[in-house]
Amino acid sequence: MSALLAVSHRLERIVSAIGQAAAWLTVPLMLVIIYDVITRNVLTWLVRNQIIGDGLADALTLVSSTKLQETEWHLHGILLLMTFGMAYLKDAHVRIELVRDHLRPRLKVWIELIGILLALIPYCGLVIYFGYDFTLRSYENHEVSAALTGLPYRFIIKSFIMFGFVVILMAGVATLLRCIVALFGGGPARAEAMALLDPEHEEAPQGAANQ
């Protein structure tokens, strides 16, 4: 049973590492937006008021606005898809706890187990299966931006749907293993799995601290 937990920990480390790395994409996203604002609005204003010439403005505008804006949703797409898994492990996803709060801990673990088997795994499986097809179509068509002035290689961003759901699947399997240990295991492994699944359970009275 503790071997299962070890696998679960390894999966968690991978999922968290991917999620934490992807989280930093918020910073380049911010910078790309700022750069777009500067080149599109500030430079245009400077040129119109004849403070700087066209030549300088063209030199400063390295990348067209359409490309920048497409870069923005590319970055955001990767950011969101690659952090879903981490959010699942950190229990950041919204749950309706109206009834759940009053359930016994073991029943909650059962619900989680059934949820993973009947909802998470089928959903991820389906998205990964068709997501691969979706990527392949784009790759074979040499698909580029529909706005002919945008970014090439659409298959790259399209492949992230598939990758993102692989990460969610890994997070789901990590939790599934903990559920199995918590329900069917024994001794310290079982207590450890239970604590991982329901950290609030052992917590002192709830403070106003963030989750």
């Binding site: 599109r40 067209s64 606005s65 359409t66 804006q69 706005a147 002919l148 002035t149 945008g150």
Partner: peptide, 12 residues
């Protein structure tokens, strides 16, 4: 594409 060549910044 044509408009871009005229120095227009196009958006979709």
């Amino acid at each position: 594409k044509v408009m871009e060549k005229m120095g227009v910044s196009t958006q979709l």
